[in-house]
Design a protein around this nucleic acid. Structure first.
Lengths: 226, 226
DNA sequence: CGCGGCTTTGATGTTCATCAAGTAAAGTGG
DNA sequence: CCACTTTACTTGATGAACATCAAAGCCGCG
């Protein structure tokens, strides 16, 4: 009955084009769910039964590859469509999704979305754009990481949380060293060593999970020049 | 006037749902173009003006990242929508496209496609599925590569051309050692050394660009166990 | 308390890039 | 057609980047 959440991207896609009957039907089938930090609420291999949207919080997309390696694919912030990468192409999820912070997820009926694509062209177009941007961003990050050294990789993680999530010079890393390793493809020890080196070189201060950026230009320079 | 190319995936998307007026309009605006091997027919940064489909041949998608590194993103075979990754999200291409073999490309009017998405729901749904599968495949390959050693990376390239392109034990590699390096993120010398080692170990025979797979199980095992 | 997981550092070894040098192959201009 | 340059390929020697192994401290939790 209620789609009146502020800042909801679904709204942006909808209100451009949807009529009130469609809106009622769509919102009537919405369920909001609070996910505690650490909970894996989508598991790789699960059948796709609904369309999920991150209203609030922070999540990670991750997977286990054929050889058994754990990998973090990307981090998701509010406005991200959690299900969007697989929902129109596969029967099952090819990745898992875990809340890094307590998160709120909106769950929609998947058939209503699919029907809307067919009946509402503007909605379809907006959805295609949104999906394209989302996958391009992930692929671009992944390609960026491949060509960087361990310094560039670790710097990119610190700068990501600074510039995209917390916006402050000091923040608590929402992920462990091990997760940084899974995201960058480095070993845990290498991640720790690079962080220690950044600390010794005066680029950052470190107190456990707490990071304070001291020399942002220095970090950026390391990030850019690999 | 003519969309009667056999095996054309556009047809599969269209004939499910399109009416004859739409088909005429769409096909009337189609241009077929032969691209000689080696030609870069889409350049990173170019404005997107049309929707391109690979009818025949073999192409590579590649880019230059912020630090100036050349990277090959993926290889495209017939049935691939060359433009699909950017066309609904960006104004310009974020990658270049070069023909590796002489290729035939069908060029469609982009506005007609965009209009069809709005007016034909089934077409929109098919396009979303196709696009999802295409980007998932690329991302999955990219993630696979990150966690593999130099042996697994080179083996994956050889097996890719064997299993996805030529289907025979012997074939001519359509790319140079340097391009293998750009795809895998390894140095040229490392690529050559791994190929030589595979040869010495009796996994493959090598005569310049010509590759013959001798021990496919051995290669597969290297690929799988990184 | 004791256990398991996360973090840190050091020592060591492997993986890989870089530099250097040379051969082969392929285009280029006269 | 041949000298000439350029580009692709190959191998060896060396060193840097990174992983692995080992040991120890820290912390939360049953």
């Amino acid at each position: 009955m209620n789609c009146s959440c502020e800042n909801c991207h679904i709204q942006a896609i909808f209100f451009k084009s949807i009529n009130s009957d469609e809106l009622d039907e769509f919102c009537g089938a919405r369920v909001e769910k609070i996910i505690p930090a650490g909970t894996t609420f989508i598991k790789q291999g699960d059948k796709i039964r609904s369309f999920k949207y991150l209203k609030e919080g922070l999540i990670k997309l991750h997977r286990v590859d054929d050889a058994g390696n754990k990998q973090i694919i990307s981090f998701g912030t509010p406005m991200d469509f959690v299900s969007i990468h697989n929902i129109f192409a596969e029967e099952t999820y090819s990745y898992s999704v875990t809340a890094l912070e307590t998160s709120t997820v909106c769950i929609f009926n998947i058939d209503i979305i699919k029907r809307l694509i067919k009946t509402n062209g503007e909605f379809a177009e907006n959805l295609i754009s949104t999906k394209s941007r989302a996958s391009n961003r992930i692929l671009s990050n992944s390609l960026d990481l491949i060509s960087k050294s361990m310094y560039g990789k670790v710097a990119s993680v610190i700068l990501f949380f600074h510039e995209k999530i917390y916006f402050t010079m000091g923040f608590d890393l929402p992920i462990s060293r091990k997760e940084i390793a899974e995201y960058t493809g480095l070993s845990i020890e290498t991640v720790i060593r690079v962080i220690s080196e950044f600390r010794r070189d005066g680029l950052i201060k470190v107190y456990g999970k707490r990071i304070e950026i001291i020399d942002k230009d220095g970090l950026m320079s390391i990030y850019e020049h690999s």
